[in-house]
Simulated scan of single mutants.
Amino acid sequence: MRMTFAWLCRLGLAALLGLGVAQAAPVQDWPAPGKPVMLVVGNAAGGGTDVIARVLAERLQGVLQRPVVVENKPGASGMLAAALTARSPADGQTLLVTPITLVTTPHVLPKAAGGAVDVMTDLAPVVQLSRGTLLPVTRPAQGLRDARALAARAKEQPVSYGTPGAGSPMHIAGELFRQAADVPLTHVPYKGVAPALSDLLGDHVTVVFSDLASASSYLQSGQLVAIGVTQAQRSPLLPEVPTLAEQGFRDVAFETWFGVFAPAGTPAATVAKVGQAINQVLAQPETRRRFAALGEVVVGGSPQDFATRVRADFDQFGRIVRAFGISVD
């Protein structure tokens, strides 16, 4: 068959147009067909982060109509899970669900710990799931009505405070309070919040800096009382408890959070899709109810909002850890 110049030109133009379409094709749709979305958690099953992740997985599965599974990867204070996520394909199929310890732990662990992941460059913030508070709790028999009374006690006699471990956000909160109150306090680190609260109930320490979820049942039963919260504003979940800043300890004002991260390099369009789907979950009344039962207030928002928060907290906690010389024993 004879091919005319005009026909060849039309063929060449079609090929070029086809090539242009291929080059401009969008990234693969998220979630990928036939593949589950995996939520990686740096704690064992049953822990606070694991419960948050499983609530999210259940609700997100309903939004996506695709399987969403939770993968527990405990170790190195959550850094192993961060490293696993960072080294996964940047397609939005593997996501990290983590508490605020993601930005505190790198300042207290050796750099090589947990796979030497750089949380500020190897991960992409997607969305802040929630915010929470820390709170000093004590036994009613101690007779401490508030944090001012705790500071006054510490000026007269030895006072100890328990935390779930050296370098934890609770330890940082305790040191901030010690500095703000200008009193001597003895730090007693435990391997988790539960043993710290158990020793508090046994009158082995004066006070414990805890998260709300861990202390909630003891507060409801009257076994323990909260004498302040670390948030700048009162927690809507404990509106009757004054902030530490209200009580004169203005430098003790920070809140905790849970958030979702993707591997660095994940296309912005994919990150946006993931964030939109999770925001749909967070808008559901049932999600808000279940998060509140875990001591968390739903937040949501854009990847940019969360990235700003992560950077600010990372820098702030770095300064605090260096100032107090905090390290893991």
Rank of each mutant, 00 (worst) to 15 (best):
G78K: 02
G75C: 00
R87M: 06
E71G: 05
G92A: 09
D91E: 10
A90F: 12
L84F: 05
L80R: 14
A90N: 10
P67K: 04
L84E: 03
L95K: 01
R87Q: 15
R87I: 04
Q93P: 10
A76R: 09
L84K: 07
A76I: 03
A90Q: 12
T85W: 07
R66I: 06
Q93N: 13
P74I: 00
V70S: 07
L80K: 13
P74A: 03
T85L: 11
S88H: 13
T94C: 08
V69T: 09
P89K: 10
Q93L: 14
P89L: 13
L80W: 15
N72F: 14
M79T: 04
M79Q: 15
P74N: 03
L84P: 02
L84I: 06
T94G: 01
T85G: 08
N72P: 12
A86W: 03
A76W: 00
A83D: 02
G75H: 00
A90L: 09
A82S: 06
M79W: 05
E71A: 12
A82W: 00
T85Q: 12
K73R: 15
M79S: 04
V69F: 12
A76Y: 04
E71R: 14
L80I: 13
A90W: 06
T85H: 08
P74V: 00
L84N: 04
A90G: 13
A86P: 06
N72A: 09
K73E: 12
V68A: 11
L95D: 03
V70N: 02
A86I: 06
